[in-house]
Amino acid sequence: MVAVAARPPRVTGRRFRSVTLGAAGLLGFALVLEVAPRIGIVPIDFAPPTSQILVTLADQLGQESFWTALLRTLGTWANGLLIAVVAGTAVGVLLGSLPLLHAATATTVEFLRPIPSVALIPLVIVLYGPTVRSTLVLVVYAAFWQMMVQVVHGVVDVDPIARDTARSFRLGPWARVRYVIWPSALPYVMTGIRLAAAVALILTVTGELVIGSPGLGKEIDNAQQSNAVRVVYALIVVTGILGVLINVVIRQVERRVLAWHPSARAEAVVR
């Protein structure tokens, strides 16, 4: 009994230690980037110290153009992700539940999927010019495959016993989707969304950088062209923070949505 009672504080103690160490790591990282340019390991003109980047970042936060760019980037990302998730889920469920269709499209998918989305850049520039639509095409193309492949796996992965049970109980098609396919595919769906969200952010920024559609990427490119070195770094940091936030939010949603799932419960017990 005593041992059981003594366990929780020890776990939190370890947790506390790892949080402290992690904070120390982040601080040390910032410090290295502060000192390295100052003592001349990297050229200070082209790699400003952390403090200067942060000052520039604070300055950017006060500017309207920054917020417009940020909102545009987020808008493109969210739209692209939404389209890819909906389309990927629809196609994935269809392919996953019709084995013949799956077999007939397998090679085509295997051929289309590795085509790098950036290969489409010249094409969309010619067709749509430097617009949000061009970037959206790239984002949707890249994120769609991530989503679709996961959903197909999820639907195929349905437990045969559950499927047979549903058949024995004469569940209708809708009830089967709701009570058999959906719960078993959900972890895959969440993984798909997480992967697709990361890829969508990469392609959103890529499109803005290379195609020149409005957003943070374009601002970075403009700043680099006009040699505003600190602004380049400040905006890069913003994209990094954006990446972290997206990751954290989706992981939280994942944990909440899958709280009932054995994998999530096992994780909760271990940690």
Partner: peptide
């Protein structure tokens, strides 16, 4: 691992293409 994990998570979250302008500068 505890020391570096947050740093790595942060660095990984960058969309890699934004590194191109910084790398050009450097």
């Amino acid at each position: 691992r505890s020391l570096l994990e947050p740093v790595l998570e942060f660095l990984r979250a960058f969309p890699p293409p934004v590194l191109v302008p910084a790398a050009i500068l450097l």
